[in-house]
Amino acid sequence: MNVFDIIGPIMVGPSSSHTAGAVRIGQIARVVAGGKPVAVTIELYGSFAQTYKGHGTDKAIIAGLLGMAPDDQRIKDSLALAGQAGMSFKFRKSSNQAVHPNTALISAVDQLGKKTIVQGSSVGGGRIVVNRINEINVKFKGDYYTLLIPHTDTPGVIAAVTKLLADHGINIAELNMYRSHRGGEAMMVIETDQAVKAEVVSLIEAVKTVKKAVLIEPIY
């Protein structure tokens, strides 16, 4: 905690959890999908579902998907801006109680028809937790530089990736592995203290059985 957690963040209102946090979930979905999607479906759970209109949670998520930050004053016009930017959207309210109260599940389809799923929860004060990427359950907050590395679960992948980071002087704050089953689809989530340059991201993508590496910049 530092002084700017208390006097801050600078954000567009009205609610740090229902608005600022929602923008952030949208932003992360955009990065994971590899840029602006052409069509998105957003399922809202819990109090997101109940109060999204009054809190502008819908506008906030769309703004994030359009690449806006939580303090962008265009957030309140984002639904119209999405139309201009050629992104269609649909909101659905879910009554499923199983997930955290402030949760959005975003399915984004890009120009080539490829679908990406990101589910995130807003946990208070604008902080979020991403808990699902496509079919894999994950857990990260996005307050560090975060590398998402989908790969096939094989021996040596983690060692190869961490060695690359070490060689470039990048310190790992946290590393987690999630997999659907042994030898199946897996996701490495690495949080680092330093920024990861694009060239290092490409080197990671060249590691055998790594499918892709996505870098998410920290929140504020």
């Binding site: 208390i6 209102g13 009205p14 600022a20």
Partner: peptide, 21 residues
């Protein structure tokens, strides 16, 4: 009111109480 109308504010310490300080 700016906060309620989706304007830009500084959470201090929260968005709901942003006007006081």
């Amino acid at each position: 009111e700016v906060n309620a109308c989706m304007g830009r504010i500084v959470a201090a310490p929260t968005a709901g109480s942003c006007g006081i300080i």
